[in-house]
C-alpha cells in the first residue's frame, strides 16, 4: 500500500516537472513551430523568469537582492513581463537574422544571461543561488501540497493550450505560418514581417519566463547550474521535435513523454548491479538517445503532425483525399 502511495506521489512530481517543461515547449513552439524562429536560447529566458520571481518573492536576505515579499502569482507575472521585455530587446537586435544565424545569436545571448546572473553576486548570490523561494500550497500537509502544485501547473498548461490553439487558428496564427513558409510572399501581401516576428518572439519568451518561474517555485531554489543549456534548452528542443513541431498538443505530449523517459529511466537503472553504479548513470543518457532515435524513425514529423490550414471550411473526415 505504501509502495503504491509512493508511486502515486512520484507520479505527481513527474507530471509537475513534465508540465513545467510543457510550458517551455509551448513557448518554443510559438518560436519555431509557428513562426520558424530558431531560438537556441531557451535557457536564457528560463533563467530570467526564474531569477525574477526568486528575487521578488523570496524573503529578505543579506546574501542577495530580495525582501519584496510578493506572492508567487505576482512573481510569475513579473517573470513573464521581465522576460517579455528582454525578448523584445533581443528581438529588436537579431530578429532579422536568418534561421541558423538567429540560433547562434540566441545561444550566445542565453550564455551571456547565465554568466551575468552568475557574476552579479550582489543581486543573485552568484553561483550559490537563491534559496527559500516560496512554493504555492506548501503550507498544506503531504500529499496535498504536491497535488496543489500539480493542479496549478496543469491549469497553467491548459489555459496556455486553449489560448495558443485560438491564436494558431486566428488570422495572426495564419500570418505566422505564412512568414515561416514563405517570407517574401508574406511581405508581398503587405505584412510587416519584422514586427510580427518580434511579436512571436516576445510571446514565446514570456512563456519561457513563466516556465522558469514555475520551476523556481517548484524546486524552491535557483542557481546558474539550473539554466545550463543541456537541461534547459536542448531537452526542450527534443521535446518539441519528438512531440511534433507546430502542434500544441504535440508540444505538451512531447514534454511529458520525454521527461517521463528521462526520469523513469533512472528507476530501471538503479536496479543494475552496484559495480555499475557510477557508469550506469551515463547509460540513462544513452537510453534517452535510443528512445529518440526510435521515435523519430517511426514518426519523422513528430508524434503529432502539424495540422495544416484549409482555405475553405470543410466538414471533418472528408477533407483528406486518400
Amino acid at each position: 500500500m505504501e509502495q503504491l502511495y509512493g508511486i502515486f506521489l512520484y507520479g505527481v512530481f513527474l507530471l509537475t516537472m513534465g508540465g513545467i517543461y510543457a510550458v517551455l515547449t509551448l513557448g518554443l513552439n510559438i518560436h519555431w513551430g509557428f513562426t520558424g524562429l530558431f531560438n537556441a536560447g531557451v535557457a536564457g529566458f528560463f533563467a530570467i523568469g526564474a531569477y525574477t520571481t526568486a528575487i521578488v518573492t523570496s524573503a529578505a536576505s543579506e546574501r542577495h537582492l530580495g525582501g519584496f515579499g510578493l506572492s508567487p502569482a505576482a512573481g510569475m507575472a513579473a517573470a513573464m513581463i521581465a522576460s517579455a521585455i528582454i525578448a523584445w530587446g533581443v528581438g529588436r537586435i537579431c530578429i532579422r537574422l536568418r534561421a541558423d544565424y538567429l540560433a547562434i545569436a540566441t545561444l550566445g545571448i542565453a550564455e551571456i544571461f547565465r554568466l551575468v546572473l552568475k557574476n552579479e553576486v550582489w543581486a543573485t548570490n552568484g553561483p550559490r543561488g537563491i534559496s527559500l523561494i516560496p512554493k504555492p500550497f506548501e503550507q498544506y500537509a503531504e500529499p496535498w501540497n504536491h497535488i496543489g502544485m500539480l493542479l496549478l501547473v496543469i491549469a497553467v498548461v491548459a489555459v496556455l493550450y486553449v489560448l495558443l490553439e485560438r491564436a494558431r487558428r486566428s488570422p495572426w496564427g495564419r500570418v505566422m505560418a505564412a512568414i515561416r513558409e514563405n517570407e517574401a510572399a508574406a511581405r508581398a501581401a503587405g505584412k510587416n514581417v519584422e514586427r510580427l516576428r518580434i511579436e512571436a518572439f516576445v510571446l514565446g519568451g514570456a512563456l519561457m519566463g513563466l516556465g522558469g518561474a514555475l520551476m523556481a517555485h517548484h524546486i524552491k531554489f535557483i542557481e546558474p547550474n539550473a539554466a545550463e543549456p543541456i537541461s534547459a534548452t536542448f531537452l526542450v528542443w527534443v521535446m518539441l521535435v519528438v512531440g511534433g513541431s507546430g502542434n500544441n498538443r504535440g508540444a505538451v505530449f512531447g514534454a511529458i513523454l520525454i521527461w517521463t523517459i528521462w526520469s523513469a529511466a533512472e528507476i530501471l537503472i538503479a536496479r543494475l548491479p552496484p559495480e555499475w553504479a557510477v557508469k550506469s548513470a551515463y547509460l540513462r543518457i544513452f537510453l534517452v538517445g535510443l528512445a529518440l532515435q526510435f521515435i523519430l524513425q517511426r514518426y519523422p514529423d513528430g508524434i503529432f503532425r502539424e495540422r495544416r490550414f484549409r482555405t475553405a471550411p470543410s466538414t471533418p473526415n472528408r477533407e483528406q483525399p486518400p
Partner: peptide, 25 residues
C-alpha cells in the same frame, strides 16, 4: 544504498529525490 543522480543541478536533484523518497521508499 539506492543510487540517484543529482547531477549537481537542483532540477535533477528534486527529480532524483522524488524517486528515492517515493518509489524506493
Amino acid at each position: 544504498l539506492v543510487q540517484g543522480d543529482s547531477q549537481c543541478d537542483p532540477k535533477a536533484a528534486v527529480d532524483a529525490g522524488a524517486k528515492l523518497v517515493n518509489v524506493e521508499q
